[in-house]
Amino acid sequence: MAAVFIRTLIIYVLLIAVMRFLGKRQIGEMQISELVTTFLLSDLAAQPLVGAGVPMSYAIVPIVTLVCLEVFFSFLPTKVGFLKKLLDSPPSIIIGKGKIDRREMMRMRMSMEDLLCELHLAGYTSPSEIEYAVLEPNGKLAFFPVNAEKPLTKGDFASGTPTQTSGLLHPVIIDGKIMEYALKDAAKSKKWLFSTLKKSKINDVSEVFLMTVDDAGKSEIITKKECTS
């Protein structure tokens, strides 16, 4: 009995340390690999607690291995380009500029019923109210309504006229890496990208932490120097 008690204490402390190490993301915001790892961790942790003949090392070794791998594979794609392509799925634009992309929906195995359900849950009645619907890598759908459906802000009251935004911001450079999918979504070329950087007196893509471009072609650049390290 005492052995089970001590084992439970050790596993509890290990799991707390491991979850702290993994980060603060809630289950709903986890990437697929993180979700799988979390489920595996709970299963592995239970093994030595329910089976007296199972040594503690059968839980500790796989738990520590999985957590280390999870940290490696969440960190490395941010630094190694091909790993990012291999492991991270970019966001998918399901509705772009007010038009439903059926091909992308099929690719994401999303039916019209699924889309309508998500729309209703987000408080919209029709796809025509949406300018952009983006399926994020964590599996959640983000909706950006057309200007006519946007709620008024304090700024709108102050200026007297509602702000007209120009669609979605496409992140064409993230942490010094060109996001090919975002360039494609924004219908921009690399030539445009480099000329825009040149205009901002930036010679190397690696100097940029974030560069976005909206549908009207307006770009915003945040360099690494501007960020706190």
Binding site: F21, V64, T65, V67, C68, V71, F72, F75
Partner: peptide, 9 residues
């Protein structure tokens, strides 16, 4: 975190 994970691994 990456370095700590690397050391632990």
């Amino acid at each position: 975190t990456f370095i700590v994970a690397l050391i632990i691994f």
